[in-house]
């Protein structure tokens, strides 16, 4: 009898995985052909009339092959999955980092000053719901560089959750703690760094975690648009090549990298978490 909840959950997960993969694999098997193939059919390689999604066995085979040599570069249309993911991660981290540099100080300002909150709120409310991809044509026109434009798109979509969470976290710092800073004659700078920042850090980190999740969603679409390099471009390129095995493989890789980014931010959040 498995006592631990984790162990039992793992067992259920494994069963679900095996059942799903098994059904997928089985559904791929073409039906038995009982009649002799015509000459035409033989010439066509006995192909099934209906195209089928490649089975998991093929995907796993490709994954082993790709991951054993992830960083090869054989020209613009044939780069290793590691290189493609690397481009995407670089763009996400750059756009996200620039957004954090702007959003966190600005969020501090909005959170501290009711005036700035009221003054900036209409802009935030209008800009926030805009799909980041809608900025793409404007970005391409102004920046005139597809790579920088995709970084800009990441930047613009990462700003909002960080800005709003920072402002919310800063505005919600308990008045008692601010009073502690005041009675100890802390300068505004010391108050910001020693009291408000640690107090608001968990909320700010939660905003950053939401942002990086959105950024990773958006980069795939952005790279499909601008092309060239990156995992989004890779997916679209393999679709154009009708290589569905690679498409499924890269979908999985997008999921895994997204999970790792989220886990990194989650553990950073745990570092600054405190219990009241």
């Amino acid at each position: 009898m498995l006592q631990s909840l984790n162990a039992r959950a793992l067992l259920v997960s494994l069963v679900l995985l095996v059942v799903t993969l098994g059904l997928w694999q089985l559904s791929h098997e073409s039906p038995e052909v009982d009649t002799e193939m015509t000459e035409y059919e033989r010439l066509m390689g006995g192909a099934d009339q209906e195209a089928r999604v490649p089975p998991p066995s093929q995907v796993i085979g490709l994954a082993v092959e790709e991951l054993s040599n992830p960083f090869y570069d054989a020209g613009p249309n044939d780069k290793g999955i590691g290189i493609q993911l690397g481009y995407s991660i670089y763009r996400v981290l750059t756009g996200f980092g620039l957004a954090a540099l702007l959003a966190i100080p600005l969020g501090f300002l909005i959170g501290m000053s009711p005036l700035m909150y009221k003054a900036l709120n209409p802009f935030i409310q209008i800009l926030k719901p805009i799909s980041p991809l809608a900025w793409m044509p404007l970005a391409l026109f102004i920046i005139k560089d597809s790579e920088t434009s995709s970084i800009f798109v990441i930047f613009i979509c990462s700003i909002w959750p960080m800005l709003i969470n920072t402002a919310f976290g800063v505005a919600g710092v308990r008045k008692d703690w601010v009073n502690v800073a005041r009675t100890h004659e802390l300068t505004p700078m010391s108050t910001a760094f020693q009291v408000i920042l640690p107090a608001a850090a968990p909320t700010i980190l939660t905003g950053m975690r939401i942002s990086i999740g959105i950024a990773w969603l958006v980069i795939v679409a952005a790279e499909m648009l601008v092309g060239g390099t990156g995992i989004g471009y890779y997916v679209w390129n393999e679709w154009n090549n009708l290589d569905l095995t690679s498409v499924i493989f890269s979908i999985l890789m997008i999921g895994i990298v997204g999970m790792l980014l989220d886990m990194a931010l989650a553990s950073a959040t745990r570092l600054v978490q405190y219990q009241e």
């Binding site: 008692d176 703690w177 502690v180 009675t183 100890h184 004659e185 640690p198 219990q275």
Partner: peptide
């Protein structure tokens, strides 16, 4: 006028910094 370290305060809810 304004807070000073010359006047220490102990609040009812302790006001310790929880982190």
């Amino acid at each position: 006028r304004g807070p000073s370290l010359e006047r220490g305060v102990v609040f009812q809810n302790y006001s310790l910094l929880p982190w």
